[in-house]
Write a protein that binds this DNA or RNA. Structure first.
Length: 255
DNA sequence: AATCCCACCAACCGCCACCTC
DNA sequence: CGAGGTGGCGGTTGGTGGGAT
């Protein structure tokens, strides 16, 4: 047993006999925080990922001391905290790419984002709905059939989009400009200066500019000290990790 | 000054594909 | 092969701020 582990006998009994795992998870979800992220939460998530990497979104929040769902953490990281996320106004070039790709692929935001470096699917989606939709004269995007990730359906969707945009009477969208930016994200350099994590050899960030130089073998789990990739992600949860829901992540020691 | 309206965007939700067992 | 878990995706919502009345 780990010294940080605070499992009481009654809790173990509940785990095994009284409270099924699914029910535990449901109960956990009801206690999850929702809404806007605080700077403290951002810092916790960012620090944790920088130190231990991304090994399992569902279980990471507890270890990071966050009362958030894995989905929420993933979204926050992908759309906001990731150092390679580009903020601020879209450039003319980016707008052109978005429009061109949209006409080619339809509402496949992630695919479009893949062609616009630094922009997230959510950002592109918002940008499209708030700015380009009107300019492109799209009446009701929501009514369009949702594109599924099924190859067989791709052609149909693409044809649909082709019909919608057959008439290219779009205004000159390049005239569009954004005056403001709600960005509060810090750059990688700023991040390096301000982050509380001072570890020099335990870093894994998908777009860390230094990532090529870093071996993932240096990444470990702060609980079991397994090296990355974490065994929990490979063969299911081991004994200790099955009960991590009862651990107080705030008091866990980070080595 | 107060209220309303609207644009913007962060975040949530539901669905689904993929993976593992 | 089927069930369950996980992550990714797209649609939608709700909070916020700024401009108009």
């Amino acid at each position: 047993m780990f010294p940080q582990q605070r499992l009481k006998t009654v809790e173990l009994v509940n785990l095994f006999t009284i409270m099924p795992r699914v029910q535990l998870q449901q109960q956990q979800c009801t206690n999850m925080k929702k809404g806007a992220w605080s700077p403290e939460e951002d810092q916790k998530l960012k620090s944790y990922i920088m130190k231990f990497g991304i090994w399992n979104w569902s279980h990471m929040p507890k270890f990071a001391g966050l009362s958030r769902t894995g989905k929420s953490c993933r979204l926050r990281w992908m759309n906001y905290l990731r150092p390679d996320v580009k903020r601020g106004p879209f450039t003319m070039e980016e707008v052109e790419i978005v429009i061109k790709t949209y006409q080619e692929l339809g509402n496949k935001w992630s695919a479009i984002a893949g062609r616009v470096p630094g922009r997230t699917d959510n950002e592109i989606k918002n940008f499209f709905h708030t700015h380009l939709k009107k300019q492109l004269g799209v009446k009701n995007v929501a009514s369009m059939k949702r594109t599924k990730r099924v190859v067989m359906k791709k052609d149909k969707d693409q044809n649909e989009m082709t019909n919608i945009y057959a008439d290219k009477s779009s205004p000159n969208v390049c005239n569009y400009s954004l005056e403001k930016s709600s960005s509060t994200i810090i750059t990688w350099e700023e991040n390096e200066m301000t982050d509380i994590v001072s570890s020099s050899n335990i870093v894994i960030l998908e777009s860390n500019p230094e990532i090529e130089k870093i071996s993932t073998n240096n990444v470990g789990c702060h609980l079991c000290q397994f090296e990355y990739p974490h065994p929990c992600t490979l063969s299911g949860l081991d004994f200790f990790h099955q009960f991590d829901v009862l651990w107080d992540a705030q008091h866990l020691t980070i080595f």
